[in-house]
């Protein structure tokens, strides 16, 4: 699904990604962990070109998205993204948020878009909140609407950028449940998170990033029980 080769990203003189190479298969759930400032989010945001890489190549489903000739909008239609701060559209109801992209990007009819949005809201457990505005919803509910909004494009893969970091502790579970259900359906997922329980339970592969590089990648049981790099050990000892 994703083939990343020697990916670099500079912000001015700051070298944030220093040559990342990895591949993510269809249906895989990849969890990215690492200290803050290690480039996890930047890496994730390169996968749908919200950040423009300064070097290297990224193939998404066989399409080279780092080629300037590629229509990145077509790629983004197939790669959903969920943000730390939800980023719901505050002037639209939950239903309108979810129906927005099917209506405007896919040009479905109003009824079709509405139906699709309602199904997804039911799926994330918010069928009764369709007419609520984002500021009338709790953080956990907002994030679930945001997941439904991304799913409304029927993407082939989903990117999660610290989806539970802005949530009160008691709301983290409801969001992780939705993500877990999604993983069980076979969705390809790339998740930047600090939720090690989720990584352990749902992740197929865990990537440990530090200082702009992937230091180690392994299945969760190996990563968490016998990491091979000292930096991984040091990081895990601090958070587990």
């Amino acid at each position: 699904m994703f083939e990343i080769h020697d990916l670099h990203k500079h912000f001015g003189s700051l070298h944030v990604l220093k040559g990342i190479t990895c591949s993510i298969a269809k249906g895989q759930v990849v969890v990215i962990i690492g200290p803050s400032g290690s480039g996890k989010s930047t890496f994730l945001r390169c996968l749908n070109l919200l950040e423009k890489p300064t070097g290297g190549t990224i193939y998404v489903d066989g399409v080279n998205i780092t080629d300037p000739k590629t229509d990145i909008r077509k790629v983004r239609e197939n790669v959903g993204m969920v943000f730390q701060r939800f980023n719901l559209f505050p002037h639209m109801t939950a239903l309108e948020n979810v129906a927005f992209a099917p209506l405007r990007v896919l040009h479905l009819s109003k009824e079709e878009a509405r139906e699709r949005a309602l199904d997804l809201l039911v799926k994330v457990g918010l069928g009764d909140k369709a007419d609520s505005y984002p500021d009338q919803l709790s953080g956990g509910q907002q994030q679930r609407v945001a997941i439904a909004r991304a799913l409304a494009m029927r993407p082939k893969a989903m990117l999660f950028d610290e989806p539970t970091s802005a949530l009160d502790p008691e709301m983290i579970g409801e969001v992780l449940e939705v993500m877990k259900a999604l993983a069980e359906e076979g969705m390809t997922m790339v998740v930047v998170t600090h939720e090690m329980g989720f990584a352990r339970e749902v992740g197929d592969v865990v990537l440990f990033m530090d200082d702009g590089l992937i230091v180690e990648q392994a299945p969760p049981e190996i990563m968490f029980n016998c990491p091979s790099h000292d930096r991984t050990k040091a990081f895990l000892s601090k958070i587990l």
């Binding site: 983004r76 239609e77 559209f89 002037h91 405007r104 990007v105 494009m153």
Partner: peptide, 30 residues
């Protein structure tokens, strides 16, 4: 308007013009 709004709309496959028309301007005009 929060740049996150633009990012969210772009990530859904919107064009820049659509982001402006449906997401940014309605919030800005208020």
């Amino acid at each position: 308007v929060d740049p996150g709004q633009t990012e969210a709309a772009l990530s859904l496959g919107c064009s820049n013009a659509q982001v402006m028309r449906y997401v940014i301007l309605p919030q800005a005009f208020k």
